[in-house]
């Protein structure tokens, strides 16, 4: 069985923010919510690196572990999704997530910040595939159409990889062997642990 993963090749990311724009456009994500963002490390200094970050769809997802209403579930191929009808917007998942993936439409107090929103790996949610409800709550369902997340598919430098972990790791391994240097699978240890 495939295990879906994201991997951002920090050597290739040029901080163009196209993945962020593509995600927002594809899923009609409202203002203030960023399912994906580009983080710059050592900004303006030698060795500056950029990494595109979203929900990593962790193996043992901490967001699911702390959710008081148990609205998270994991698909058979490892995509972590949630039911917005159950979410109470408590924010526990935001504090538990090592990647800051959960987002809220309002920056207010407990109970009024709205339903949590996060990357769905372009796999929609627990509504009928391609229905109006799914589009409104979770965005488009590309995985159901045999497509991979748009952020990765349209990445101009192919820095952002998505798909079966074996294929992603194989592509990255070949790159590292070609260019030399140390492999930096940013976030993989935190997200996938032993599975990384």
């Amino acid at each position: 069985m495939a295990r879906m993963k994201f991997l951002c090749d920090a050597e290739r990311c040029i901080e163009c923010q196209a993945c962020v724009t593509a995600c927002k456009n594809e899923h009609e994500v409202p203002w203030g919510v960023n399912r994906r963002r580009v983080i710059v490390m050592n900004d303006g200094r030698p060795g500056e690196k950029s990494v595109s970050v979203a929900c990593m769809h962790c193996t043992d997802a901490p967001c699911a572990a702390v959710c008081p209403v148990d609205c998270f579930y994991t698909t058979a191929d490892g995509i972590v999704l949630h039911d917005k009808d159950l979410c109470i917007g408590c924010g526990y998942c935001f504090y538990a997530c090592p990647f800051g993936a959960p987002q809220y439409p309002q920056q207010t107090a407990f109970g009024v910040r709205g339903k949590m929103d996060k990357c769905t790996f372009c796999a929609g949610g627990p509504e009928e595939a391609h229905s109006r409800a799914e589009l409104t709550k979770y965005g488009t369902n590309r995985v159901e159409e045999g497509k991979l997340p748009l952020c990765a598919e349209m990445c101009s430098t192919k820095a952002l990889l998505a798909g079966d972990g074996d294929i992603v790791a194989d592509i990255f391994r070949k790159r590292v062997m070609t260019r030399g240097g140390r492999p930096q699978t940013w976030g993989w240890q935190a997200a996938y642990g032993q599975d990384a």
């Binding site: 698909t75 191929d77 999704l81 949630h82 039911d83 627990p126 995985v143 159901e144 045999g146």
Partner: peptide
């Protein structure tokens, strides 16, 4: 234990079909 609506796409059959 997940309390929400069941997602047909989360099943092993669906995952195997799109693999």
């Amino acid at each position: 234990v997940y309390k929400g609506k069941q997602d047909a796409a989360a099943s092993e059959e669906a995952a195997a079909a799109r693999e």
